[in-house]
Computed example of a mutant assay.
Amino acid sequence: MEQYRCTKTIVSLINYHFVFCPRYRRKVLVGEVEIRFKQLVQQICKENDWRILAMEVMPDHCHLFLNCLPTDSPSAIMAKVKGVTSRILRQEFKHLAHLPSLWTRSFFVSTAGNVSSETIKRYVEAQKKRG
């Protein structure tokens, strides 16, 4: 089911599918790091009024499917998510502290256009099960 957002003057349906990776595609998003990363993303999204439609964290990359307002640009969303999670995870986990940054500067983003939001959601949720 599509998620329409209604604010004072804006009615929108903007769903972004993001994929982003740690530097050098390191497999660091495991165990306690994965758990803490998910908590941080949920907190950041709540603070910014972004709705998480689906999230799957693989050891070397993350899929994040968000519903946002048109005032939130994809680059601003990624800057916030990557910046906050990189800083906090490197502070809290000693084995990540030596990294100058946790994430690559690049990311993939698409909107739900030719493919329905439900299809993207199923795809993201199926990532963990692929082995």
Rank of each mutant, 00 (worst) to 15 (best):
H98R: 04
F18A: 05
M58C: 07
H95D: 13
R87I: 10
L66D: 00
M1T: 13
K129D: 13
K94C: 06
L64W: 00
A76C: 09
N67G: 13
M78W: 04
H17S: 05
C68S: 07
I14N: 04
G31C: 07
T71L: 07
L96R: 09
E56H: 01
Y24D: 14
S86P: 05
L64M: 05
L96H: 06
V109C: 11
P70R: 03
L13G: 04
C6A: 13
Y123L: 10
R130I: 09
M58E: 11
K128G: 09
L96Y: 02
R130T: 07
R26Y: 06
C62P: 02
C6K: 15
K128Y: 09
F20M: 04
V33E: 04
N67F: 00
K80T: 09
C62G: 03
I35G: 11
N67V: 06
L66R: 00
D72F: 04
H95A: 03
V41A: 04
F65R: 02
D72E: 10
N67M: 11
E56M: 05
E2I: 11
Y24L: 10
F65K: 02
N48H: 15
R25N: 14
R90H: 12
K27I: 13
R122Y: 10
T71A: 11
F108S: 08
T119W: 03
V28Q: 00
A112Y: 01
L53W: 04
R5F: 01
I35T: 15
R25V: 08
F65C: 06
W103S: 01
A79W: 12
N67H: 07
F93S: 04
N67T: 08
R26I: 00
E118D: 15
R90F: 07
Q43P: 00
T104W: 04
L53A: 02
R5I: 11
K82I: 04
L13K: 08
K128I: 10
V124C: 08
V19I: 07
Q43E: 14
S101Q: 10
E56I: 02
H17R: 07
P100E: 15
I77K: 00
V124R: 01
E32Y: 12
A76N: 06
L66C: 07
K128T: 10
R105Y: 07
E92Y: 10
K27L: 14
T71P: 01
L99Q: 03
W103D: 00
Q42Y: 10
Q3G: 05
Q127A: 14
R36S: 06
L102G: 00
A76H: 09
C62K: 00
S73I: 06
R51H: 09
E92N: 05
L13T: 11
I35N: 07
E47R: 08
R36E: 13
Y4L: 13
F108N: 04
F20I: 12
M55C: 14
A126Q: 15
E47W: 11
A112C: 15
I10W: 02
E125N: 09
